[in-house]
């Protein structure tokens, strides 16, 4: 993927760019709003990572608004030191696709980057069935089958599995699950997400020979066929 990273802090920028390159992406960097805006409108990227506060008179939101006003639908991930809920809403309202507050764990960012890239592709064709290996879910009848066996899931468990399936082969973090499956935007002190994932595993993985849901240390979960 071709990614534009607009971030003024050199440490954060080089750290992020290095990580993204290691994950196999092509990264263009810009350290100010003016250059960032120029690159964003003149070249084609699969994803833009924007810091909200930038030197040079043009901040992240301005770049985002300019992009959107030119009907440029490139997915945008906003980075910000402003943790305020209102700021998050403002960022998403301006056309941002995701919002992360600094400081962040790189694993979290990578997971979100992959999710955004996937979403760009997935949206083109609405699906009614998702399948990974022998696991198959039907989004219309809301049924789950593994092999020939039918699995009964609670509604919330279904939504959790659906999210994991949609992001199959990608790491999803606990925060992403909390935000997307439960629509909560706070950090629970207890391991609520782990518990729900382990319950899902009990139903989806435990009775079968191979496990599909894997834990990635310090990052989150991934659903994939080994």
């Amino acid at each position: 993927m071709r990614i534009l990273l607009v971030e003024d802090d050199p440490t954060v920028r080089s750290f992020t760019a290095k990580g993204l390159r290691e994950a196999g992406h092509v990264v263009e960097e810009s350290d100010n709003g003016k250059d960032g805006l120029f690159m964003a409108v003149s070249e084609n990227f699969d994803l833009v990572i924007l810091d909200r506060m930038l030197p040079g008179g043009i901040d992240g939101l301005r770049i985002l608004q300019t992009l959107r006003s030119q009907n440029n639908a490139t997915p945008v991930l906003i980075l910000s030191a402003l943790a305020d809920v209102d700021e998050r809403v403002a960022g998403l309202k301006a056309g941002g696709d995701d919002y992360m507050t600094k400081p962040f764990a790189f694993s979290e960012m990578l997971a979100r980057v992959e999710a955004l890239a996937r979403r760009g592709r997935a949206e083109q064709a609405p699906q009614t069935k998702l399948s990974v290996a022998d696991l198959e879910i039907d989004l219309l009848s809301r049924t789950v089958k593994r092999g020939n066996e039918r699995i009964d899931l609670q509604p919330r468990e279904f939504r959790l599995l659906e999210f994991l399936m949609r992001h199959a082969g990608q790491v999803v973090t606990r925060t992403m699950l909390l935000e997307r499956v439960w629509d909560y935007h706070f950090d629970p002190q207890t391991n609520v997400i782990d518990v729900h994932v382990s319950r899902l595993r009990q139903k989806v993985d435990k009775p079968f020979d191979t496990a599909l849901i894997h834990t990635i240390r310090n990052a989150g979960y991934i659903l994939r066929a080994e």
Partner: peptide
């Protein structure tokens, strides 16, 4: 109800 559901699993786990 939603929060209760989110936490009931965690409670059960403990």
């Amino acid at each position: 109800t939603d929060i209760g559901e989110l936490y009931s699993a965690a409670a059960e786990d403990a």
